[in-house]
Design a protein around this nucleic acid. Structure first.
Length: 616
RNA sequence: GGUCUCGUAGCUCAACUGGAUAGAGCAGCUGCCUUCUAAGCAGCAGGUUUCAGGUUCGAGUCCUGACGGGAUCACCA
């Protein structure tokens, strides 16, 4: 990127005038320049209030003098008006022309120079016992777009996921498959392999539930109810007791736990089964990732990282940062920063979640020498990450000031939270298939693509359907929990990706009709329409939006920006002619303007992982 | 109960991080296709920003309290 934007120039002029007229020094960046509200004349507004105190003058006094100085001192201002403490500035046509030219000549507009820094972004991070669902989709979209945004900001980005491939959950699927599948495989059943494994996870729970409800009628259970005095609320009691039952009484529970022990002992056949089933899951996941356009630079497996933190914990006990309880367990006291005492190693010497995360963080730093690290994880883990970051800080890790938890709100349905028990989990593959087929219906109903090949058409269905889904999820500020209405996710009207894509497509359609372009038309004396100024103003601020989206880890800023730009373009398109414009200057100017709008739309949506079709 | 977090139109979301009369979309109602793709445009209607105080030139945004949701407080991950 090169040169200064029109806003930066205004800030500089204001700072200069404040210095020359009032002998007041201010950094140009600190001058507040807003877009002027529609009901006033002008395009940019300088807020005077902040200077009032320092200058000991009233807002009108400052405003009038400043306005006079600005307009006399430069030909970029055409006019001004002062309302209360707001100085509204009307920019000259030549200023807008210059701005459009600047944008169009900047090959890397909105792409910042390489800054030599490495950032690692962890997202997706699934368990291997069931397929991806709606919650993962939000996570993945945030991870992907954050990665793209940081690349545009000049970082070297390393995308990673850590797969939870071990533990009791996967053993459940393994157990159920071993005992109830009759050797069925994804190939033999024709089921997508991750769904296939998920099917056996469900199967396990069915069997467990059956076993449990039988047990509830047993003498054992009755005696237990008696001793706990829970006769009055039996059902409630059993609901809460399920985990205890699994650990203490259940037949398949103990068989599954044995499987986990065998796995830890590296028992050959258990490992073989584990690998077989996990590989099925990975094959399934990869299909889903491919459909969403996701890839990773490095994958970490918990089966490999779960032992990592232990030696550091021991090391820092010696340094006095952690302490050992009498039973041998190791802790850190974080109560002085409003967190609790956290356990870091169990009394039997085995690791907990926190131990692994400490080890993995150090491992990643050793692997890549990263400058910062982002964890895309739902906000239910806020507490955990606060504690983790505090611990790494106290350990004096060099990257500990550059850790960020991209904490996002849970996805809920209009009927409430998704519950596997109630079968309300929205499956990622189903959802993707549905939005694509909805896009297909919509295109066919509308017509106009008949001359394209089947491949081209199916590609367009994907671009529209996936665009709609991705946009629908990413337009919401990540921090907020979102209510996902499946009906609305396939909408193609209003604030949606297809609306934005359509603005792009409309201009592409014009481009195709233009034929050979005359490049020698001089439109520098052309008088701009207000709608054209609006568009230039919007395009101009695109780099700032990218920066903001990155700094705030908020891709929704780009989603909203894209929508507003598309909306302005649709209005422009509706009210002004391009090919049949009133003059050759107008035509050329509008083509130049439309070209830049289309480019920015494509870039902005690109940073959200959304593609633009040429036609739709 | 402790800690954190959220509360904006019937619904889903914005509001440039303290700036002007709080904006969009959906849903509802009116208009606009022999003219560059109507997945569009123009318009109507919809609000005491949960409530009560405070801070200041100025508060949806900051502080205090109340009410109402959510998350979390395991030798689970």
């Amino acid at each position: 990127m090169q040169n200064r934007s029109i806003v930066q120039i205004i800030q500089e002029k204001v700072a200069q005038c404040l210095a020359s007229e009032f002998n007041f020094t201010i950094e140009p960046n600190d001058v507040v320049v807003n877009e002027t509200k529609k009901e006033f004349d002008g395009e940019y507004t300088v807020v005077i209030f902040p200077f009032v105190k320092a200058l000991k003058m009233s807002p009108p006094q400052i405003g009038e003098k400043l306005a006079a100085a600005l307009i006399n001192g430069s030909d970029i201002f055409k006019n001004s008006n002062l309302v209360a403490g707001f100085l509204n500035l009307e920019m000259s046509d030549s200023a807008w022309q210059t701005e459009l030219l600047r944008v169009s000549q900047d090959e890397s507009f909105g792409v910042f120079p390489k800054n030599g820094k490495k950032i690692m972004i962890e997202f997706s991070s699934p368990n291997t016992n069931k397929p991806l669902h709606l919650g993962h989709v939000r996570n993945i979209l945030l991870g992907v777009s954050s990665a793209l945004i940081y690349e545009a900001l000049g970082y070297e980005v390393i995308k990673t996921k850590i797969i939870n491939d071990r533990g009791i959950a996967i053993c459940k699927s393994m157990y159920a498959w071993e005992h109830y599948s009759n050797g069925e495989t994804p190939e033999s059943s024709g089921i997508k392999p991750d769904h296939f494994v998920g099917k056996y996870y469900v199967k396990f729970n069915e069997i467990l539930n059956e076993e449990y409800s039988n047990w509830q009628k047993s003498d054992n259970a009755n005696a237990l109810i008696e001793t706990k005095g829970a006769q009055a609320h039996r059902e409630d009691f059993f609901k809460k007791y399920k985990n205890n039952y699994f650990n203490e009484y259940s037949q398949i529970g103990s068989a599954t736990k044995q499987m986990l022990l065998d796995w830890e002992d590296n028992k050959e056949e258990t490992i073989a089964l584990w690998k077989k089933m996990n590989n099925w899951v990975y094959a399934g996941f990869d299909e889903t990732y491919a459909k969403m356009g996701v890839n990773f630079d490095i994958i970490y497996y918990e089966s490999e990282t779960y032992k990592l933190g232990r030696k550091y914990v021991e090391e820092f006990v010696e340094k006095g940062l952690f302490y050992r309880e009498e039973d041998g367990s190791i802790w850190i006291d974080l109560e002085d920063v409003n967190l609790d005492k956290k356990i870091l190693l169990r009394s039997d010497g085995t690791s907990v979640y926190m131990t692994q995360d400490i080890g993995t963080a150090k491992q990643r730093y050793e692997d890549y020498g990263i400058d910062s690290m982002v964890y895309v994880v739902a906000d239910e883990q806020n507490y955990h990450f606060k504690a983790l970051f505090e611990i790494l800080k106290r350990m004096g890790e060099p990257y500990s000031e550059a850790l960020f938890h991209l904490s996002y709100g849970m996805v809920e349905l209009p009927t409430g939270r998704m519950k596997s028990r109630e079968g309300t989990i929205v499956d990622a593959d189903d959802l993707i298939a549905e939005v694509i087929s909805e896009a297909e219906n919509s295109v066919k109903e509308k017509g106009g693509l008949e001359e394209l090949t089947d491949d081209q058409k199916s590609n367009i269905y994907k671009q529209i359907g996936l665009g709609a889904l991705k946009y629908h999820m990413i337009k919401v500020n990540p921090k907020k929990k979102m209510i996902f209405d499946p009906k609305e996710s396939v909408d193609m009207q209003g604030q949606t990706a297809p609306y934005i894509q359509n603005a792009f497509v409309r201009f592409k359609s014009i481009e195709r009709k233009l034929g050979e372009l005359k490049t020698d038309i001089d439109y520098s004396a052309y008088t701009l329409h207000p709608l054209e100024k609006d568009l230039i103003q919007s395009i101009s601020k695109y780099p700032e939006i990218v920066k903001e989206a990155g700094q705030q880890f908020d891709p929704s800023a780009l989603a909203n920006y894209s929508y507003n730009l598309a909306k302005q373009f649709h209005k422009f398109y509706q009210e002004l002619r391009i090919i049949t414009a009133e003059s050759e200057e107008a035509k050329q100017f509008r083509i130049a303007l439309g070209t830049e709008v289309a480019k920015v739309l494509e870039k902005a949506m690109g940073l959200l992982g959304i593609e633009m079709p040429e036609r739709m």
